[in-house]
Simulated assay, not measured.
Amino acid sequence: MTTGAPTPTAHRRRSPARTFLPLAVAAWVILEIWLLGLVADAAGGLTVAALIAGGIVLGAVVIKRAGRRAFKNLSESFQQAQQGQPPTARPTGTGNALTMLAGLLLILPGLLSDVVGLLCLIPPVRAWIGRRAGRLLERRVAAARSGSLADAFQQARIHQPDGKVVQGEVIRDDRPESRDRPDSDAGYRPPLAP
């Protein structure tokens, strides 16, 4: 029996991403505002407004084009699957995720995000980022496979290899009346039969 005392919990260490991501976003926003202020002082507010509007329009066009390409690829894959053909392999570096990210960065107001978005539109840069992101994802997946969640699933598969769920109820023998009268049938329940 527990006395109701709180159990001690181990202090979990905060991940570096959760610590530094808010600081990086705040620094990015401050840098964007500072750069917009510099351009406004040098060229005027109308120029800043035109740059922001141009970035929004260009980003919308890029996202729309990448979305159409993704929908076209999806519909081609469905047509091939309906015809019983294996899907054709697409060359790497033609993915739409980085193109859509570039469009999103162009839509965000700011000069630095526009420069990063324009860099993501250059095919060699996009391919390099795609390779780096792929390697990072592979490392994360490999680390997650060796983690505790994967071990828990493996243990569950060991105990129930067929994955069947058995309906039933839990019978506890730690009640006082069953300990006092072991020969009593009041708490007895027969086991479930298949």
Rank of each mutant, 00 (worst) to 15 (best):
L21N: 03
F71E: 14
G59S: 06
M1L: 05
R131D: 02
I56K: 10
A24S: 05
G110F: 12
G134W: 09
A10K: 01
A89R: 11
Y188K: 13
R179C: 00
L111T: 15
Q160N: 14
V61K: 04
L119F: 09
V165T: 15
A66Q: 06
I33S: 04
P124K: 07
I158C: 10
R175D: 10
R179N: 08
I30Q: 05
D114I: 10
L58T: 14
C120E: 06
L121N: 10
A81F: 08
D174T: 01
A42I: 06
L136T: 08
A5D: 15
T19M: 13
A27C: 03
Q82V: 00
V29K: 02
A42Y: 14
V57S: 07
L38K: 08
L112Q: 09
R145K: 11
Q85K: 08
R14W: 04
A133P: 02
M100D: 05
R90M: 10
L108Y: 13
T47P: 00
R14A: 13
Q167H: 04
Q83T: 01
R18K: 11
T9M: 12
R90F: 05
L192P: 06
T9D: 11
L108P: 02
R126H: 15
P6D: 15
K72C: 02
D174R: 00
P86Y: 00
N73Q: 10
A40T: 00
S146A: 10
D173S: 06
K164R: 03
W28F: 03
Q82R: 08
V165A: 14
G44V: 06
W128L: 14
D162V: 03
L58A: 15
V116E: 05
R181G: 01
P109Y: 07
A24N: 00
A186N: 11
R18Q: 11
L23P: 01
T88D: 14
R145E: 09
V62M: 07
V170Q: 09
